[in-house]
Amino acid sequence: MPAPIPEAAIQAIIGAGRRMDRFNWVPATAGNFSVRLPGNRIAVTRSGQHKGFLTAESVMVVDLDGRPEDPALRPSAETLLHCGIYRRFPEIGASLHGHSIANTVLSRRAGDEITLAGYELLKAFPGLATHDASVAVPVFDNDQDIARLQRAVEACWDAITDGIPPGYLIRGHGVYVWARDMDAALARLEALEFMLDCELQDRRNPA
């Protein structure tokens, strides 16, 4: 019999859904969230759930390869991307995927990355103590083959020598961020979304 999902993990995921729903970052059934559990287990949102109305029954458990503990339940389609984050970064405890207007529009117009520079909220990212910095957020082409998409993400990480970016975008799809726990992941997501929204406004209203 699998171990039950800790109540703290369930409530962290439910709370993230409500918070992101308030910003319209998870419309319809978009988005997915996860929390690392002991024993190489991951609590993740089930497929087809509106993230603003999650309950305990909306959360299930998979292993680090995305296999459900209960084969009768189906996780979110992009669960393997969460698994890739946890396999790569053992210190990471939570991951978030959302679909804002800003990240969707900007990623459709971008090349391989979006550079954010000079923003005060860059200090929300690891290793940045000042606004006088820049971060290049990778943009990957959308791909319904999630395993292939994860390989592209990992190849990007492998090529970086000066620190992994705090998240990445999937073109026309959404954003992924991760952090040591859910509160930190939400703070990182809000900082990134604020800067992406600023970039979108700047492009709509050039000086």
Rank of each mutant, 00 (worst) to 15 (best):
A117F: 06
C156R: 15
L116C: 12
V137L: 14
G167C: 13
Y119E: 14
P166T: 07
A129L: 13
A133R: 12
A155M: 10
F140I: 09
A159R: 15
L128I: 15
A147S: 07
I146Q: 00
T115Q: 14
G127P: 04
G163C: 08
D162V: 15
D158A: 15
A136Y: 02
V153F: 06
A147I: 14
F125P: 02
P166D: 04
R148D: 07
D132I: 05
D145P: 02
P126D: 13
I164W: 13
A117M: 11
I160S: 05
E154K: 11
E154P: 04
L122I: 07
D158I: 02
P166N: 08
V135R: 03
A133T: 00
G127L: 11
F125Q: 02
V153M: 10
L149P: 01
W157C: 06
P166G: 13
A129I: 11
V153A: 14
L169M: 06
A133H: 06
G127M: 03
N142K: 02
E120M: 09
L128G: 02
G118P: 04
I160H: 03
W157I: 09
A136M: 02
Q144L: 12
A124V: 04
T161N: 07
D162N: 13
L121Y: 10
P126I: 05
L128P: 00
D143P: 01
S134W: 09
T115A: 15
L149Y: 05
D132S: 09
L149K: 03
L122N: 07
R151S: 04
G163M: 11
A152H: 08
P126L: 13
R151T: 03
S134A: 11
L128T: 13
T130Q: 09
Q144W: 08
A147C: 03
P126A: 14
Q150G: 02
A117I: 10
L128A: 01
V137A: 00
G127T: 08
L116G: 11
P166V: 09
S134G: 01
A124N: 08
N142V: 01
Q150L: 13
G167K: 07
I146G: 00
F125W: 04
A159W: 01
Y119T: 12
Y119D: 12
V137T: 01
E154Y: 05
R148N: 06
T115M: 13
V135I: 09
K123P: 04
V139G: 01
S134E: 07
A136S: 10
R148Q: 11
